[in-house]
Amino acid sequence: MNIFRLAGDMTHLLSILVLLLKIYATKSCSGVSRKTQELYAIVFLARYLDLFTDFISVYNTFMKIVFIASSLAIVWCIRVHPMVKRSYDKDLDTFRHYLLVAASFLLALFLHEKFTFLEIFWAFSIYLEAVAILPQLVLLQRSGNVDNLTGQYVFFLGAYRGLYILNWIYRYLTEPRFTRWIACVSGVVQTALYADFFYYYFISWKNNSKLKLPA
């Protein structure tokens, strides 16, 4: 474990806590894409299939359980909780996210570390996570003004994978046989997708103005 990876995991956890706070405090999921939340639930379920078979550390197991439980809880809130469900804007959240699932799985069938069930689902989860934010970014562009908590949620979610890239560079330089191309390339693509969001987020922070993504 290095400082970049720890910072990445904590930033990821923070993004989830900010989203939970937004939904709990405002009893609303306006500006939040249910489809992105569903994709993240699939990402965690597919990536942590080895949760009970492959013990790495207490930290690792604890975080996996937190990520799976929180992503399922958020999807449940948006789909089932009467007050939150009412604020979900399905006319804005129209990204065909099942195409992302299909494309990621297809790619994982061809590009993986080993042709085993766990490895294919792991690669699938890596590719899917890279594009999982797309429905959310599209929704932010459509919904015009973005409330602070949702903006912070997306910012921390994008920043965590950027910190992971620093972690991979650090590990590549310090560990003799460290190579993880699938996660690295996918992580760079994932972080790049946030580039324009980061730009507008920085502008809004600098001008102390409302975050607004151009349509």
Binding site: R5, D9, D50, I56, N60, E113, Y164, N167, R177, R180
Partner: peptide, 10 residues
Amino acid sequence: CSQESSKDEL
């Protein structure tokens, strides 16, 4: 050291 489990990251 043994080949570190390649899935030690979240």
